[in-house]
Nucleic acid binder design. Structure first.
Length: 257
DNA sequence: ATGACACGTAAGACGTGA
């Protein structure tokens, strides 16, 4: 079973790239973030034509998440992160596919920090930690994947000193990520490649991709029942080099059946 | 310190992203 995550930065702007990537790599489950499309503008027909059934949580202009499954209908569990009825951002979607619980998340960016946007990020992280603790306590196989907007360590950024004051790398953000790991979650890509420089995002400016000036901010956190099945994982970096690419690349893991 | 690029919205810049 291959599970992938991809921040598309606009599902309709990215549709040709998305369909090409699906066709070439045929993941079984796909979590998408930054749809940047309202619920009714999701390209359901094209996705279905590609062999995927989908659930999605759209929003006009910003945010938006989706879960796709190949030849299968994802069974929706929830479309909101619990803990704040006032939160209107479409940033979380949860479903079961093949008995596996999949959480698809688009964590707030949080810049500029400090400020209200950073406060929102930290509050979202608190809610996420609470929910993650409940999920891991269930003992079920759970995969929490998406754009975390957190650079976990200095090994996950091309030039750490440039990012110390950024919301993605500030101590509060990194500490929250470590607290998730302390709950018992495993960072799948880091476990598979402990010493490798792995990036999942390269900004559009200054030829960042050509210089490999990247960040690792899209992650897979696995519950213990899933870690035992982990066979492989990586970044489809070649997709970032395509015409009209997102600034993120798809990330994937392969699990034993 | 700034801005470069891309997206959506909406019809010209502007807010946002990371």
């Amino acid at each position: 079973m291959k599970i992938a995550t991809y921040n598309v930065n606009g599902i309709n702007a990215r549709l040709p790239v998305l369909l090409r990537w699906l066709k070439e790599t045929t993941p079984d489950v796909v979590c998408l973030q930054e749809l940047k499309a309202p619920q009714e503008k999701f390209p359901e027909a094209e996705i279905k034509e590609a062999g995927y059934q989908a659930i999605w949580n759209g929003q006009k202009s910003w945010n938006g998440v989706a879960i796709l499954a190949r030849n299968e209908q994802p069974r929706e569990i929830r479309r909101e992160l619990p803990g704040d009825v006032e939160d209107t951002h479409s940033r979380y979607l949860e479903a079961t596919v093949n008995g596996m619980l999949i959480g698809c998340l688009y964590l707030p960016n949080g810049n500029p920090a400090p400020g209200p946007k950073f406060d929102y990020k930290l509050a979202w992280l608190e809610r996420f930690k609470t929910h993650a603790a409940e999920l891991i306590a269930s003992g079920k196989p759970v995969v929490l994947t998406g754009d975390y907007n957190i650079i976990p360590t200095e090994a996950d950024v091309y030039k750490p000193e440039r990012w110390f004051d950024d919301a993605l790398f500030r101590p509060e953000s990194r500490a929250a990520y470590q607290e998730l790991l302390a709950q018992g979650w495993t960072d799948a890509l880091r476990k598979l490649h402990p010493d490798k420089a792995i990036y999942t995002y390269w900004d559009y400016f200054r030829n960042a991709f050509g210089r490999n000036a990247g960040l690792r901010i899209d992650h897979f956190l696995l519950s213990p029942a899933v870690v035992t099945k982990l066979k492989a994982g990586g970044v489809d970096q070649f997709v970032r080099g395509w015409e009209k690419s997102s600034d993120h690349a798809p990330v994937w893991i392969e699990l034993a059946d």
